[in-house]
């Protein structure tokens, strides 16, 4: 069984978020920001390698857009190679992780960074389809793989 990308390029991991005085003050409130969303998904494991999406630079903090007041979260992800067959699975795991870990008021959109995958359009459509995401979670085999990817996040 061959891997899509046997020897992927690795990138540096970013430091843990620094906790400020403000974070510890009971009276202050913090809005959701792109870093918080990034922290939720950066630890997800790639389905092919025991490496995190951050190390493979599939997700990047600069490609995350958050508007706390308008209840919008937009995440772009970049597959390591344009023909990656795992792209849908990676997108799905990001989407599921966010669905589980963000308050229900947010509208979450997970799409491929434009121009980085051969079947970008089809995958985006698939990820945007509530029914298909729900159906994927019902599938035992798929949910086992998903759980494995998300477990490390």
């Amino acid at each position: 069984m061959g891997l899509d990308n046997e020897n992927p390029t690795l990138f540096e991991k970013s430091e843990e978020r620094i906790i400020s005085e403000k974070d510890l003050d009971d009276n202050e409130a913090e809005e959701f920001d792109s870093r918080e969303i990034f922290d939720l998904i950066r630890g997800i494991t790639d389905p092919e390698h025991p490496l995190s999406l951050e190390e493979l630079r599939v997700v990047d903090q600069n490609l995350i857009e958050v508007d706390d007041n308008a209840n919008i979260v937009k995440v772009l992800f970049t597959p390591t190679i344009p023909h990656c067959s795992m792209a849908t699975l990676i997108g799905l795991s990001i989407k599921v992780r966010l669905l589980w870990c963000l308050p229900p008021r947010f509208k979450i959109s997970v799409t491929i960074t434009p121009g980085t995958h051969a079947s970008e359009h089809a995958i985006n459509k698939q990820l945007d389809d509530k029914e298909r995401v729900a159906a994927a979670l019902e599938n035992t085999h798929l949910s086992t793989v998903l759980n494995k990817c998300i477990a490390t996040a």
Binding site: L24, D26, E28, E30, E36, P103, T144, N147, A151
Partner: peptide, 28 residues
């Protein structure tokens, strides 16, 4: 799920951790 919208980020971080753990208790 109700705690996910806590005003403090550190609490939210803890909620995510706890919820994920509870979600995975019956994963084979």
């Amino acid at each position: 799920g109700k705690c996910l919208d806590d005003k403090k980020r550190l609490v939210r971080k803890e909620v995510v951790k706890t919820k994920s753990k509870w979600l995975s208790i019956d994963v084979i």
